[in-house]
Amino acid sequence: MEEGCPTFFPPFLPSSLASPYSLIHSFNHSKLETSTSHYRSLVAKLPLLKAEIAKVIVGQQDAIEEILIALLASGHCLLEGVPGLAKTLMVKTMSEALHMSFRRIQFTPDLMPGDIIGTEILEEDHETGKKFFKFNRGPLFANVVLADEINRTPPKTQAALLEAMQEKSVTYGGENYPLPNPFLIIATQNPIEQAGTYPLPEAQLDRFLLYIKLSYPSETEELDVLRTTTGTLKPEIGRILSDTEIAELQKLTRQVHIADELLVQINQLVRASRPENTDSQFVREWCDWGAGPRAGQALVLCAKARAVLHERFAVVPEDIRALAFPVLRHRIAMNFRAEAEGITSDQVIDELLSAR
């Protein structure tokens, strides 16, 4: 937990804490719809959850935290990393520790929308002899869905995820089918091989709450990987949280307090990423367009989720800075000259944060 930050459900805040924490004094904790002790017990399980995942996954702590933030914020995330960084294992391990159903969909050029959503099959009633169509649910009907190498399938199939990601339901044959709750899509893509890939359209990229980039492990971590994965022992993953408890934590996340000063900072940061609104010469020179209002909503929700993950009931500036990159990097479009010069959206975000 960060030093000087209010702890979870504080009875009061130290007077030494300066704005933006001052507004938290007047926050009415009685607004919570469930008892404080119950929420405390749920939040106390989150460090245990991260420890359980760490039994299998060596390193990648930032990525694990960001995936959990997406889950608490009821969003979806896009993972980008070279092959061999345990992306699939990470997601599968998390779903086991959460006692939630998990399905993996391998996206290929010939994958059709019906392969992920489901399709109708003709069945016969053995008593009456009448035939009827029955909807056979596809692999999308799971709590955690890993869309592996999503950029290898055509846009038509990619678009099949749009309704599911936004509405958490699918429509087939005029009927609406709700997806399980909680529902989390984690898509992966390979940054190396671009031949035969279909870049995700901007509309679908914006549906992902977070765009998480995985890096190589450190030398010590990689040595631990060699030591722990080449023997006979296989760690057993305990079930830390249930789907019902995750749903309660998602509800709690939206009740986390954020001061108006921090909302103003988030709004200014998002607006500063737009060439037509910004004072930044760097943005005007290298960006085609900036982040939209959904980016601000995403940053607020993710900051609240990070506060819960760190056992706080108030957002602090560090929450915003820690999540600015995964929230904004896929919502800022660079111009052709920037792509030619190797200027990335991460550099734009870094420039904007440095100016604040």
Rank of each mutant, 00 (worst) to 15 (best):
E2I: 11
C5S: 15
C5M: 07
T7H: 10
F8N: 03
F8L: 12
F12Y: 15
P14S: 10
P20R: 04
Y21R: 08
N28V: 09
N28C: 06
L32I: 14
S37C: 02
S37M: 01
S41V: 08
K50P: 05
I53H: 04
A54F: 12
V56T: 15
Q60M: 02
Q61D: 12
I64S: 09
L72C: 02
A73V: 06
G75W: 00
C77R: 08
L79E: 02
L79Q: 01
G81K: 00
V82Q: 06
P83E: 12
G84R: 00
L85E: 13
M90E: 00
K92N: 14
K92G: 08
T93L: 05
L98R: 05
L98D: 05
S101N: 12
I105N: 10
T108E: 09
D115K: 02
G118P: 00
T119F: 01
D125F: 06
H126Q: 13
E127M: 04
E127I: 05
T128G: 08
K130W: 03
F135L: 00
N136C: 02
A142G: 01
N143T: 13
V145E: 06
L146D: 08
A147C: 10
R152Y: 09
Q158A: 05
A159L: 07
A164P: 08
V170Y: 10
Y172R: 13
G173H: 02
G174C: 09
N176G: 06
L184F: 14
I185C: 14
I186A: 03
T188S: 07
Q194Y: 04
P199F: 13
P201M: 05
A203K: 03
L205R: 07
D206T: 13
Y211K: 12
I212T: 03
S215F: 03
Y216Q: 08
T220Y: 11
L223T: 14
T230R: 12
P235Y: 00
I240M: 03
T244A: 11
L249V: 13
K251N: 15
V256I: 15
V264Y: 07
S273E: 04
D279E: 05
Q281E: 14
F282W: 10
F282T: 09
W289I: 15
G290E: 01
G290M: 07
P293T: 15
A295P: 05
L309Y: 13
R312V: 02
F313E: 08
D319G: 13
D319H: 07
P326A: 00
R329N: 05
V348T: 00
I349N: 05
L352W: 03
L352N: 11
L353K: 01
A355R: 15
A355S: 14
R356P: 07
R356C: 01
